[in-house]
Design a protein around this nucleic acid. Structure first.
Lengths: 332, 332
DNA sequence: GTGAAAGCGCTAACAG
DNA sequence: CTGTTAGCGCTTTCAC
């Protein structure tokens, strides 16, 4: 058991208030007593009790981070950035994973609220009025990344524009036929539409906006779980070369592998473009064309926004866009 | 501000003790008052204040997880497993990253101790008597993974044997010349030997034990940062085919890429074997020979051990080995 | 400059 | 079965 301020007070023959002043660098104390107290604190290996401190101060100096999982590089990279940004401001991060389970997400949020985290950064898997009400009832500042929630602060790239630009990029590489691959959209409508798919939806909308605008374009959206087989069939049936624009690098890699295993060459027989520019791409050949999202930037910005919300100093704008960039590759 | 037990007590015209009994399912209360209390709690959206609860109970139901970073898949996968295992037992996990900085590691540990985490799971970057003393002074149960610390509970694979077996596997694939690639070992001796490299050292020792035992074997250990160039030179200079046994899949992938960029074919001109079996390998061609470590298993086991230590129910053994497996590939 | 006292919200031991 | 009381360790206000 570490020593407490009370004991230090006794040892130094001063009051607890004085010890507090010394240990927290507060004013109104002679340098003599301050030094005495600091020294005994060191001597007895004093360790402040942050739970007690939080209780009386009403701030826990901790934040909650809630993601699907940490297996996905997108989340682990972002968690890394958030964790660092948080610590540099004195916050520690609880990280919890929902495994895309709506009930888990709910429980985690309540638990974190009970732990009195000062703020939350999350990628919500749920949407809808009820959920937003519940979130607001926690009375904790929240910043979302990836999926959006109306009325809640959000940091992300402009998914719509990024997808729009990507479609344009693919088309300028000579493709007249683009297929958007986005398996998560399967879930649309499930559970009374409670799944939050805003990020994916904005991407598909950006894609459609471009392809519909350009009358020469043929387009399709693939949401099958087994999109590899579906894509292979499309390629075989059509003589026109198709580009597969995947809503995430992971799907692009899966597709690349599937096509390779089925003797379809990229980019000779079909084109592929990904999204996110995950760091594992450096090891992949051919180099995947993709959209680079600065995940670290999103994480940092999200933390910054959260701190602003917590301190209430300045109200940050509701949505903060982080720049993105088209990354050319050898797969188109 | 959520309602407190005190307010509930007033509303229900009972004492705080009774409210506590009702809300925590403790015995000694009539079902009538219990129901009344539960209902008002629900009605007013009561949320237990876990900080206060922790303070008086002396348990925070939180654990600290300390790794180099979360960019490395090894750590993020493990964090994911730990986070899940923890939550299933009611614990939440603080996750902090050191970025391989000894001073950061120290600060993080002290901060977590101040937050009164009930236990710690870490991959220490520091070693030495002073560090161990400091760790023990925290008076918190600690479980290490990866790197070891004498006298502290540890969960991992048997690195020595895994490396030994791998060397044997490589040799049985026909190689008479094996080069162990392990850049982290460069740090050996830096900062008065404070860097903890036990995991890597055990691997190199296992490798050496095998190669030294078999007199026909030629061996070498590469620790250069720029190991790709060094390896390429070795390959060019010798007519005998060399296998590069990399202490981590990451190095193996870097090497594979480097050699490919320099027109050296694997496995025609040289062999490569990795370590860890990271999940990104599924996307890599040629399929990398490696050693599979069940990272989830290590994470789960570490949490299990930690819970045993916290509860003090049964003292777990000091070292717990998790099985590993040689994974054949196309790179040998 | 320093001390005394009340309080953060919950828990636990004891008395009735 | 229920109430009272005394904490947990730190913070903060107010008086001296």
């Amino acid at each position: 058991m570490p020593i407490t301020t009370k004991q230090i007070a006794e040892i130094c023959h001063v009051s607890r208030g004085t010890v507090d002043r010394a240990l927290n660098g507060r004013a109104g104390i002679s340098s003599k007593t301050r030094e005495l107290i600091e020294e005994t604190a060191r001597k007895y290996n004093y360790r402040p009790h942050l739970l007690a401190s939080s209780l009386s101060r009403g701030k826990s100096m901790s934040i909650g981070v809630v993601f699907f999982d940490l297996k996905n590089r997108f989340f682990s990279q972002m968690s890394n950035a958030i964790s660092l940004a948080a610590r540099s401001r004195g916050y520690f991060t609880y990280i919890a994973v929902t495994e895309k389970d709506i009930e888990s997400e709910k429980q985690i949020l309540h638990n974190l609220a009970s732990r009195r985290v000062d703020g939350l950064i999350m990628l919500p898997i749920t949407q809808g009025k009820d959920f937003i009400r519940e979130l607001k009832e926690l009375e904790i500042p929240v910043v979302t990344v990836g999926n959006q929630l109306p009325g809640i602060h959000h940091v992300s790239i402009d998914e719509f524009r990024a997808a729009y630009d990507s479609a344009h990029y693919i088309s300028s590489a000579g493709y007249r036929r683009i297929c958007f691959v986005c398996p998560p959209l399967r879930k649309k409508g499930f559970l009374d539409g409670r799944y939050n798919l805003t990020s994916q939806e904005q991407r598909v909308q950006g894609f459609l906006a471009y392809t519909k605008k350009n009358s020469g374009m043929k387009y399709k959206v693939l949401t099958e779980k087994d999109f590899g087989a579906a894509a292979a069939e499309m390629i075989r049936k059509s003589k026109e070369k198709t580009a597969f624009f995947c809503s995430s690098d992971i799907y692009a890699l899966d597709l690349l592998k599937y096509l390779g295993d089925h003797l379809i060459s990229v980019p000779e027989d079909a084109g592929i473009m990904g999204f996110d520019n995950l760091d594992i791409l450096t090891y992949i050949k051919p180099r995947l064309a993709t959209v680079s999202v600065s995940i670290d930037e999103v994480g940092k910005k999200a933390m910054e926004t959260l701190v602003d919300l917590i301190s209430g100093a300045k109200k940050p704008g509701h949505t903060c866009y982080v720049p993105y960039q088209i990354c050319p590759g050898e797969t188109l």
